[in-house]
Amino acid sequence: MGGIKVHGIKISTCSQRVFAALYEKGIDFELVPVDMQNGEHKKPPFLSLNPFGQIPAFEDGDVKLFESRAITQYIAYAYADKGNPLVVIEDQKKMAVVSVWMQVESQQFDAAAARLAWELVFKPMFGKETDNAAVEEHEAKLAKVLDIYESRLTESKYLGGDCFSLADLHHLPVMKYLMGTRVAKLLESRSHVNDWFADIQARPSWQKVLSM
Rank of each mutant, 00 (worst) to 15 (best):
K157I: 03
A113D: 04
T154I: 09
S156N: 09
N84G: 04
Q54V: 10
Q92A: 15
V121T: 03
E155T: 15
A76H: 02
L159V: 09
V63C: 01
E136F: 02
E137C: 09
K94Q: 12
E129G: 08
G161F: 02
V88L: 10
V135F: 02
K157N: 10
L49Q: 07
M36W: 00
D147W: 10
D60L: 01
A133T: 14
K128T: 03
I148V: 15
E129D: 12
Y79E: 09
A133D: 15
I89M: 14
L146E: 01
F52H: 13
N84E: 12
Y158W: 01
L47A: 08
D81Q: 15
K123S: 02
P44R: 13
I75T: 06
D35P: 09
V100A: 14
A117C: 09
R152C: 06
M95Y: 11
K64W: 08
E90D: 14
G160E: 00
A111Y: 10
S106G: 13
F46R: 08
A112W: 07
D91R: 00
Y79A: 08
E90P: 10
Q54F: 05
A70F: 04
E136T: 11
E59V: 13
Y158E: 03
V100G: 09
K94R: 12
A76E: 00
I75D: 05
L159E: 04
I148P: 11
D147N: 11
V87I: 13
